[in-house]
Structures are given as structure tokens and as C-alpha cells.
Simulated assay, not measured.
Amino acid sequence: MAFPTSAPPLAATPEDASSRATVAVPLWVRAWRRFRANRLALLGLGYVVLLLGVALFADHLAPYSPVETFAGMRGRGPSVEHWLGFDHVGRDLLSRLIFGTRAALIVGLGATGIAVTVGVLVGSLSGYFGGWVDLLLSRLVDTLMAFPTLALLIMLAAVLGPSLLTTVTVIGLTSWAAYARVVRADVLSLRERDFVMAAYAGGAKSSHILWHHILPNVLGPVIVLGSLGVGSTIILESALSFLGLGIRPPAPSWGGILSDGRAYILTYPHIAIAPGVLIVLTVLAFNFIGDGLRDALDPRQRG
């Protein structure tokens, strides 16, 4: 009797097929699926994309110049020609809000980009090298976080003078400490992992290990924290402009328009209501995106 030389292949079980399908799907595709399942995150993303479009094409979307004054229209309410009415000096409020969107996103994204860059650099160096480098950079982070953020911003903005560039730079260089702490904690854990030790034993330089092995593994939490930080940055810019230390008038900004309407809240309430609603909606949108990214990039999630 002849015996088979090899056993027939086993039938694939549903679990094996599911496992192969999970491995075959790229990580970013699975992350997008999880993000897409969060309706609030999608809603926030759609709103932010709309704001980006408004900011990019503000010159074409604004019906009037943001600094043009209409005689005799001071504080007038909404009408067919002017949907949101006029501000306290007779400028079209809708046009000023449209151009203020550009300023808000420049500050929000620009300052957050600076903060993330500095925070990742400081946190990665502190966590990877340890010793006196970690001690020095950690004390720097602790010192920066010891100051009240708004008070530090007001002091620096008053010294440097109000402008868009000053606002972006000052907010970015005073809000990186939180990112540095998160990155440092992750790097302290990652530098003891086997793949990092193997790269080090293979003769890889510290710069190569940081750039190719450690930083890619800390980007997930940083992206989530950065998306949440954009909303906080917009609030800080609005606070500085509200106090007259942000973007220099007559250039429109949401905080500046809100400050203009403060003295007329009882007589011309629409001046303060419109920018206030925009600030709230924008901060909520970025928070929704941050929550969606946190769930999408969580390695414990599957599918």
C-alpha cells in the first residue's frame, strides 16, 4: 500500500482568513476606517476643510473689502446685501470674518507647527540621551510650564509689539513644553526596546536611531496632541487680539472683532456674537478631529 509523501493542506479557518486580511491592509487604511467611523470627527474635518477653503479664497469670497467703511451704516444689523450687518465703524462684518478666518488658521496651524517641532526636538533629545542633557532640558520645560501661559504671552507680545508674525512666533515658542513632555516619556520607553538596542549594537548613529526608529513611533500621540492644540492656539490668539496685543488693527481677526463688539454688546450685539460663534465652532471642530485621531491611531484598536 502506497502512503502519501506529504499531508494535504489544511483548510483555512475563518480566523486565519481574517488574520491574513488584517495583515494585508495597510495601517493607514485601517486608521482611516476607524476615523471615518467617528461621525463627529468627520463633521469636524469637513468644517475645517471648509475653513481652509474660505481662508485660501478669501479675496474672492468676501463681498467687500474688510477695511472699507460705509458712511451712515455704523452698527447696522443684517440685511440682504450685508448678511451679518456692519461693525461699530461701518465695515461689512461678513467680509471681516472671512479675512479673519485666514488669520486664525495661520496662527493656529503656524504656531502649533512651531510648538510641535520644538517640543519633539527637545523631548527626543532629553529622553534619548538622558543624564545631564535630560536634567537640563527637563528643568527648562518645568520653568516654562511654571509661568501662566497667557501672562507670558501678554508680556512678550507687549515687548515685541502686535503683529501677525509676532503672534505666531510668541505662541509657538511658549507652548511647546507639553509636546516635549509627551515625547520624552515615549522616548524613555522606546530606547529600551529590542529594535532600538539592535540598531545601536549594529553601529547605527544616534541621529539615525532617533530619526528612523524612535521618532516614527512617537508621531501618533504628537499628531493627536497637535490637533487638539490648534483649538487652544486659536483661543490664545483671540485672547491676545481681544486685549489689543495680537494682530494689529485694522487687519481683521476674530479676537479683534470680538473686542470691537465688547463695548456695544447691548446696542449692537451681532458684532460680538458672530466671531464668538466662529471661535466656538472652530475649537470644537479641532477637538472632534483630535478625538477621532486618538481612536484611529490607538494601536489597541483593530479592524
Rank of each mutant, 00 (worst) to 15 (best):
L97Q: 03
R139C: 06
G110K: 14
L109R: 12
G123N: 05
R102Y: 10
A115L: 11
G130V: 03
G108V: 14
V116A: 06
M145F: 14
G119N: 07
D134H: 01
M145Y: 09
G100N: 04
V118F: 04
V118N: 04
L121R: 08
L97I: 14
L125C: 13
R102M: 01
F129W: 12
F129L: 13
R139E: 00
Y128S: 00
G131C: 03
I98C: 04
G130C: 00
V116K: 13
G108I: 12
G131E: 02
L125W: 05
T117N: 08
T112S: 14
W132G: 03
R139N: 15
G119L: 13
S138W: 04
L137Q: 00
R102Q: 06
V107G: 06
F129Q: 05
L121P: 01
S126G: 11
V122F: 07
D134R: 04
L125I: 13
V122Y: 00
L109I: 15
G131L: 00
L121V: 13
G119Y: 10
V116R: 07
A111S: 15
L109V: 15
L121A: 15
F99I: 00
A103G: 01
L105W: 09
V133P: 03
V122M: 12
T117F: 10
L121Q: 10
V118C: 07
A104T: 13
M145G: 03
I98P: 00
V120G: 05
G131M: 03
F129H: 11
T143H: 02
G127A: 01
L105Q: 08
G127T: 00
L140G: 12
T112G: 13
A146M: 04
L97Y: 09
L140N: 05
G108S: 11
L109D: 08
M145C: 08
R102K: 14
L140C: 10
D142V: 02
G113M: 11
W132C: 03
S124D: 12
L144Y: 05
L109W: 14
A104C: 11
S124M: 08
S138R: 02
V133T: 00
L135H: 09
T143Q: 02
F129A: 15
A115S: 12
L136R: 01
V141M: 02
S138V: 02
V107Y: 11
G110Q: 11
T117G: 07
L137F: 01
G130M: 00
G123E: 15
G108T: 09
I106T: 10
R139Y: 01
V107E: 10
L125S: 05
F99G: 07
A146G: 15
T101R: 04
A115C: 05
R139D: 08
V107P: 09
I98L: 12
Y128M: 04
T143F: 13
G119V: 11
G119T: 12
I106A: 15
V133L: 07
L136C: 06
V122W: 09
I114A: 08
L125Y: 10
S124V: 10
